[in-house]
Computed example of a mutant assay.
Amino acid sequence: MNGQNRKDIHPGLEVNIILKKDQRTGIKTRGVVKDLLTNSARHPHGIKVRLTDGQVGRVCEILQK
């Protein structure tokens, strides 16, 4: 699943995100969601989240449901 819909993402979910610094290269970072930072129900580039380790990026892939 992609990470464009807010309803699909919740704290504790394992996801791949793309950090701001990696947007050009598309390098993915794996982690567990701590907070959802995007308020809208849908975002074309992915919902912005904070991982448990503090990194912030947009969800590109949901690894577990």
Rank of each mutant, 00 (worst) to 15 (best):
Q55H: 05
V59A: 03
I27A: 11
E14Y: 06
Q4K: 14
L13G: 01
T52I: 05
I9W: 00
G12N: 00
R58G: 12
L19Q: 14
D22R: 10
V59G: 04
G54E: 13
D53Y: 02
I27T: 15
I18A: 05
Q64M: 07
P44R: 02
G54H: 04
P11C: 02
V49F: 00
V33F: 03
G12Q: 01
N5T: 03
M1C: 08
N5F: 10
L37Y: 07
P11G: 08
D22Y: 13
G26T: 03
K21G: 05
V33I: 14
Q64W: 04
V32F: 05
I62R: 10
R58Q: 13
I18G: 09
D22M: 09
S40V: 15
D53Q: 02
G54I: 15
A41Y: 07
L13T: 05
G31P: 04
N2F: 10
I9A: 00
I18W: 05
D22H: 14
T29M: 10
C60P: 11
A41L: 11
N2W: 11
I47C: 03
R6G: 01
N39L: 11
V56K: 10
E61Y: 05
K28R: 15
V59T: 09
K21H: 12
H10Q: 01
D22V: 14
I17S: 03
N39Y: 11
L51A: 09
D8C: 01
T38V: 14
G57N: 01
L19R: 12
K34I: 03
T38L: 05
V15Q: 10
L51H: 05
I62L: 09
K28A: 05
L51Y: 03
I18H: 09
H43P: 07
K21S: 13
R42H: 15
L13E: 08
I47F: 02
E61K: 11
C60V: 13
I17W: 08
D22G: 14
R58M: 09
Q55W: 02
L63K: 12
I27E: 15
